[in-house]
Design a protein around this nucleic acid. Structure first.
Length: 378
DNA sequence: CAGATATTTCCTGCTT
DNA sequence: GAAGCAGGAAATATCT
């Protein structure tokens, strides 16, 4: 089979998996490299007509699944690699996951030659974009400072019991974590929206939106981590931060799945009945939970491993995780109670196993994957 | 279009 | 009493 044809297979897989996943918001990215050498090839690996994608201009840490697939596709074309040898399952990971893989792990997945090639390309791209990370660190320091500032405010509405850093609740659009970080776009949404001071986290929605003195932030788009939930409306969702709360201005929302909420208990908050577009299911709940656990930088004390090898984990901030899940599913009324019901359904399917007598503790079952140390090549 | 799937929502009862 | 757990039932968006 011709390599171009195989590449088309990858392209098709890409198109099917991510029909309209937004590309990294390169305009918002503060990546000097891309400005200076917009189409400069991956130096180590450019000798043909294979097309470089947006991935080239972005730190692999921030690649979406689509970017990873495009990167692989680029190298298939470049090296005339027989793509039929590829296991497409291995091609469906996002940048952060990719970066967790060791050289050996990549060689295991992609074979000695192609794996080696990918490894070197990845390392070279990581090195090339180290500045991105530095910038990110600077921003994090800024967040910490703002945290301190908000905490020092008298009668701060943000102070709550054990609610961690305040800026867990708000993120200014990070030049590097915007659209490129598609699999965790919902995490940033969550950070903006979650108000730890309220016990259910969605009361703030009802608060009137005031013009902000602190600024207005554009929300990064939040495609499903399956990568297929491109949502132009959602990507334009804007948040404003006020002295009182962070209020999300919801675009038209689709009707929520599941049994309709009973009327009469503040249901006016949730009377979202407009269906507006096709939204694929995307990531499953257990995968969402797993991803929080295997990405410590995204975890922020939400969950922890009780036994890493056995896959036993615990919810530390159950409601916060539920809200994060709700954020991802564009469902502002998600609670831990509901989330845990969905978790309990996993027992039957052996995606999770019961951990008796321990509150908020679950264990991955034999039908789950992607969390084991060996799988991640750690 | 039908059926299956994966939640979402609500509920009752029980345990910690 | 609050929070969490267990699991039935119904509803529904999405997938096959």
């Amino acid at each position: 089979m011709a390599s171009s044809e195989l590449s088309r297979i990858l392209n098709n897989a890409n198109a099917n998996l991510y029909p309209s996943e937004p590309q990294p918001n390169l305009h918002a990215m503060n990546v000097p490299n891309m400005l200076r050498c917009p189409q400069q090839p991956d130096l180590a690996f450019c000798n043909s007509t294979a097309m470089l994608g947006p991935w080239h201009q972005v730190n692999p840490q921030y690649w979406s699944k689509r970017n990873v697939l495009e990167w692989i596709e680029f190298h298939v074309e470049e090296s005339k690699f027989d793509a039929s040898l590829l296991n497409l399952d291995y091609c469906s990971m996002d940048g952060p996951t990719l970066c967790l893989h060791s050289r050996g792990s990549l060689i295991n997945m992609f074979g000695p030659l192609f794996g080696e090639r990918l490894y070197h390309s990845l390392e070279s791209l990581k090195a090339k974009h180290t500045d991105d990370t530095t910038q990110s660190c600077i921003l994090n320091e800024t967040y910490a400072l703002l945290d301190d500032f908000l905490l020092d405010l008298p009668h701060s509405p943000f102070i709550s019991d054990g609610a961690g850093p305040l800026l867990d609740t708000v993120v200014i659009q990070n030049v590097h974590t915007d659209k490129t970080e598609s699999d965790f776009g919902y995490y940033n949404d969550y950070k903006i929206q979650l108000t730890p001071g309220s016990d259910n986290g969605y009361d703030s929605y009802s608060e009137s939106l005031q013009s902000s003195t602190a600024g207005s932030f554009l929300n990064p788009s939040s495609p499903e981590s399956g990568g297929s939930d491109s949502d132009p409306e959602y990507s334009e969702t804007r948040y404003q931060v006020t002295a009182q709360s962070f209020v999300k201005q919801e675009p038209m929302e689709k009707k929520k799945r599941g049994r309709p909420p009973k009327l009469g208990r503040g249901s006016e908050h949730f009377s979202e009945t407009k269906k507006n577009k096709h939204t694929p299911r995307g990531t499953h709940l257990w995968e969402f939970i797993r991803d929080i656990l295997i990405h410590p930088e995204k975890n922020q004390g939400l969950m922890k491993w009780e036994d890493r090898r056995d896959g036993i984990f615990k919810f530390l901030k159950s409601e916060a995780v539920a809200q994060l899940w709700g954020q991802k599913k564009k469902n502002s009324s998600m609670t831990y109670e509901k989330l845990s019901r969905a978790m309990r359904y996993y027992y039957k399917r052996e995606i999770l196993e019961r951990v008796d007598g321990r509150r908020l503790v679950y264990k991955f079952g034999k039908n789950s994957s992607g969390w084991k140390v060996e799988e991640l090549g750690m």
